[in-house]
Design a protein around this nucleic acid. Structure first.
Lengths: 131, 131
DNA sequence: GTTTGAAAACTATTTTTTTAGAAGTTCATC
DNA sequence: GATGAACTTCTAAAAAAATAGTTTTCAAAC
């Protein structure tokens, strides 16, 4: 009987942290702190606490180097993006990803260029043969 | 100087409530309670409290009918979907909605049929002329 | 071998979200 | 005008998330 990993989502703050870690590839608490404080001031221990929690949740791994812990992403950004889209799709779009695209399409802030780009992506996977 | 509505997002539970309200079009606390309890048991006053909060946040309107309050959506589902996608896009996709579609495209659970549907939506807005 | 400094681990506080009991209101009915 | 059922409003407590102070650890510097 497989346990299925019960994909938890990141909280607001955790996501901000994770974004920093994905961007930089990770580092020591102090390094990550420095990165995060560009956006918002936070105490060293706050960051350390959250990172530890994220490790427990399985989003990060840590490894000792010298006296410090070095944290690295345990989950690729692409995977988490997928998880999030699945969740959003099921919670707000009746489980229909196409409905989600429909909403993007009628957002006036989304430019034609972006739409063309999206179409290219779709065609790529579908194969252009049926045009 | 425009105040800009500071579009707040719904919390987990609020979204569940809102989903019920969108589906049914709204109703009295007791009616909404009945709808929600199909999924999870909750006390009458819990539901009443959350609905009140959601009204304060501007997601619902209320109106007295007989002795009861009748709650109705103040925000169309489509609008909220858009808000959420914008948020997600900025927080997790570097503000590029196309990146979001890219992720949908390489999700093996998304069928070709769905992709074709998405493409149709794009073409519709873009106009098929350039094929 | 004692002091010192940087870090982790532990513990605690504050804030936000979720849940719900208790008190007050309204209105039909006796 | 008292009673009671069906509400809303008020108040608060429990749970979760976010922040940070205090203590401990450990190596290096004196």
């Amino acid at each position: 009987m497989r346990k299925k990993q019960d994909n938890p989502l990141l909280t607001e703050v955790e996501l901000e942290f994770m974004t920093g870690v994905w961007e930089t590839g990770g580092g020591t608490v102090r390094e990550i702190l420095a990165e995060l404080n560009k956006r918002q001031e936070r105490a060293y221990t706050s960051v350390a606490t959250v990172l530890k929690i994220m490790e427990q949740k399985g989003f990060l791994t840590s490894e000792r180097a010298d006296r410090s812990l070095v944290y690295r992403p345990a989950v690729p950004k692409a995977d988490y993006q997928k998880t999030t889209l699945k969740n959003l799709s099921s919670k707000l779009f009746n489980g229909a990803p196409a409905a989600l695209v429909a909403r993007l399409v009628d957002d006036e802030d989304v430019t034609d260029e972006m739409l063309v780009e999206m179409r290219a992506l779709l065609n790529e996977r579908l194969g252009d043969d049926e045009r």
